[in-house]
Simulated scan of single mutants.
Amino acid sequence: MYVLHMEHSVPDYAAWKQRGFDPDPLGRRQMGVTRYRIGRKAGDPNHVMIELQFETTDAASRMAAALQQMWVGAQARGLIGVPQLTQFEIVEDAVL
């Protein structure tokens, strides 16, 4: 399993979630996302963490490229801060 982990600031979490994330402009399911998680930084609710899970590294890489293209416009319009994007291979996952 592979995960894209990203973090960036938004001007208003509720507005970003409703207008930016929920409409799903890139088509997460069609791009191979099998699960996602959203978190907000403790003490800064407008700093978001998103993890997208994939079955293949190719699907994760395609989504990473699409996100980077989309972010150019979003940053230019002041909708998000500078995003950090990292791709991981999950080698162990346990519930305790």
Score class of each variant (00 low, 15 high):
Met1Gln: 02
Met1Ser: 03
Tyr2Asn: 09
Tyr2Lys: 09
Val3Gly: 08
Val3Ser: 09
Leu4Thr: 00
His8Thr: 01
Ser9Lys: 10
Val10Leu: 10
Val10Thr: 04
Pro11Asn: 01
Pro11Trp: 06
Tyr13Leu: 06
Tyr13Pro: 14
Ala15Gly: 05
Gln18Lys: 06
Arg19Asp: 05
Phe21Lys: 01
Phe21Ser: 02
Asp22Phe: 11
Asp22Trp: 11
Pro23Asn: 02
Asp24Ser: 07
Pro25Ala: 01
Leu26Ile: 06
Gly32Arg: 09
Val33Asn: 06
Thr34Gly: 14
Arg37Trp: 15
Arg37Gly: 09
Arg37Tyr: 15
Ile38Tyr: 13
Ile38Trp: 15
Lys41Gln: 04
Lys41Asn: 00
Gly43Cys: 15
Gly43Ser: 15
Asp44Ser: 14
Asp44His: 15
His47Asp: 01
Val48Ser: 03
Met49Tyr: 15
Glu51Asp: 05
Glu51Tyr: 02
Glu55His: 12
Glu55Phe: 12
Thr57Phe: 12
Asp58Gln: 12
Asp58Phe: 11
Ala60Gly: 04
Met63Gln: 02
Met63Gly: 03
Ala64Ser: 04
Ala66Leu: 11
Gln68Val: 01
Gln69His: 14
Met70His: 00
Trp71Phe: 14
Gly73Trp: 10
Ala74Gly: 03
Ala74Tyr: 10
Gln75Phe: 14
Ala76Glu: 13
Gly78Asn: 05
Leu79Met: 08
Leu79Lys: 08
Ile80Met: 13
Ile80Phe: 14
Gly81Leu: 07
Pro83Gln: 06
Thr86Tyr: 15
Phe88Leu: 03
Phe88Ile: 01
Glu89Lys: 06
Glu89Met: 07
Glu89Cys: 07
Ile90Glu: 13
Val91Cys: 11
Glu92Gln: 09
Glu92Asn: 08
Asp93Trp: 15
Val95Arg: 15
Val95Thr: 08
Leu96Phe: 15
